[in-house]
Design a protein around this nucleic acid. Structure first.
Lengths: 311, 311
DNA sequence: GTCCGGCCACAACCAGTGGTTGTGGCCGGG
DNA sequence: CCCGGCCACAACCACTGGTTGTGGCCGGAC
């Protein structure tokens, strides 16, 4: 199945005759006839009944038509996604932290007419470079690691503080706790595979460890959240941190516990970064939406790294 | 943009190298290279950065990737829509009556995982023939016109009674009424363009006219609902019938009135028709959904033609 | 530093897809 | 009954899109 053929099918269905469709597509009637015949051969069904005054859709053809239109519009959207100028708003979200994705879903629900593309870049350096080059329009990050101020032309606001919870298996020493003070975690093994040194995410946990004397192991490759959950569920001595907004599904039989952390609650400070000169109209809408969503949230009793931008 | 090229792009993005993608697609590495180069030329952006150990997606490539996947899955759905055996459930709804479409939307909301194709066939003869031949799985109709019983192998249940309302312009004699008894419509001109003689829809209005002494004009071609609304709005002497569930948008400045009809309220008896032997699993789900939706509705004070199937 | 291996790009060549023109059959209306 | 309009089939041709062959580049090992 090829897109030109599908386009021909739609044109013929709309015109209700091959001749006119051919004129519209600037080919001969014979070409249209051959394309439709080829499409019918590929699909294995008759799409038109040929009459002396044109061509009528068969029932199969009527069923196929909306799918054909959808296919063409998907092609149009695909091409638009990389068109320079008036392309969809491109937003980078930090991997492994699902809260930013949730914010973007909320924005999409509030503004379904705004075209969005969501990416996950590697780290904040890449994100900032992409914002400066115009490759992306905005990025959800914890803002810059200590000692590396943002360039002048990049703006940032803190838009969401996501509390971290402890995730344990049923046999863990803290599995029964309703909540646990941060200081009580000293001495427990906390495993966070997949943290890449040098990223702003790693800097966050470095600060957390230094300030509260935790021991976080980032050893081993990240085999994905399934493997992580498997291990946490089966290993009494291990726990991990997980954003409170992260929605996970785990296999039946894994009796995992989410335990809020308090005194203070460590929160991950998601911020939105963008280029001050970016004229994309949807960017203003995104900023307004996030500002409205963040308003009124309380920061008492929470901890963020000293280098997090203020609210 | 052609689908083979897009498939190649996705394979290369997944494999993170052209060579492996080529093996997967059973072509040479050179062919993949040429396809990707052609795609990049068409789109006007670089999709991969070529390295000595493979090919990495650029940011544009990352933005394009989900659209490419969507495009391929749209192609898959399009092909599936005409695949014999295990194709989406195909349901015919009567044109110009929007209530059946509403029922199908409700069904889709309740079962988003069930693939659906909605068609609008010409009349009940066509629909019954299509059901018997297996071209469609079900049809929303008012069931058969008088004197033409359904074939033995077709089953039917009445699933929705849709009250008709009178639609008038602001200068119509009845424009100010909160409701109007059916008998009061005698002598008023009611215009229903587009009724095709011989259809079950025409039979419905024939009976309505005969029983209550109305005068319904079906003259003139149907130029679509926009033209109908224009005329109704501007012509004090004309009114038309419209299903209570029909959602219309009319241009600003048209002050149209919807007036319920009573004593009795004429209702259009939508029924679901299907083939007794149709094994499509989604058909059972549709019947169950409609039965649940129809339960408990009251038929007191309403009128249906004598030939409507009982509830 | 140098060599080697892996991967991608360019060039030349060839087959087959997909277009064109020419023509015939069919159906409906005047 | 003939004419006009529309679609299908046939023959032909160009160019797209594949193949093989080869070269350049980069990174790791020695």
């Amino acid at each position: 199945m090829d897109l030109d053929t599908v386009r021909t099918f739609v044109a013929a269905a709309d015109a209700r005759q091959f001749q006119e469709a051919a004129a519209e597509l600037a080919v001969t009637q014979q070409a249209v006839s051959k394309r439709i015949a080829a499409l019918e051969r590929n699909l294995g069904v008759r799409l038109f009944t040929r009459t002396a005054r044109g061509a009528e859709l068969t029932i199969d053809g009527q069923a196929f038509l909306p799918h054909a239109r959808e296919l063409l519009s998907a092609a149009e959207r695909a091409a638009a996604s990389v068109r320079t100028g008036r392309r969809p708003l491109r937003v980078d979200v930090i991997a492994s932290r699902v809260a930013a994705t949730g914010l973007m879903r909320g924005f999409h629900r509030a503004h379904p007419e705004i075209e969005l593309d969501v990416l996950m870049l590697f780290d904040i350096e890449t994100a900032v470079a992409a914002i400066r080059s115009g490759s992306i329009d905005a990025s959800f990050r914890a803002v810059v690691a200590p000692g590396r101020p943002l360039p002048e032309d990049i703006a940032a606001v803190r838009v969401l503080d996501e509390p971290l919870q402890l995730l344990t298996g049923p046999a863990h020493a803290l599995a029964g706790a309703r909540s646990v003070p941060l200081a009580r975690l000293a001495g427990h093994r906390i495993w966070m595979p997949g943290i890449v040194p040098g990223t702003e995410w790693a800097a966050y946990y470095d600060d957390l460890v230094a300030e509260f004397g935790l021991s976080i192991e980032a050893t081993g490759p990240n085999f994905g959240s399934d493997a992580l959950l498997d291990t946490i569920a089966d290993t009494p001595a291990l726990a991990t941190f997980m954003g409170e907004r992260t929605r996970l599904v785990w296999p039946a039989g894994h009796d995992l516990r989410r335990i809020p952390v308090t005194d203070p609650a460590p929160v991950y400070p998601h911020s939105l970064l963008w280029h001050r000169d970016n004229p994309h109209p949807a960017l203003a809408a995104l900023r307004a939406h996030l500002a409205a969503a963040a308003a009124g949230r309380d920061t008492a009793g929470t901890w963020v790294p000293g280098w997090a931008i203020p609210r």
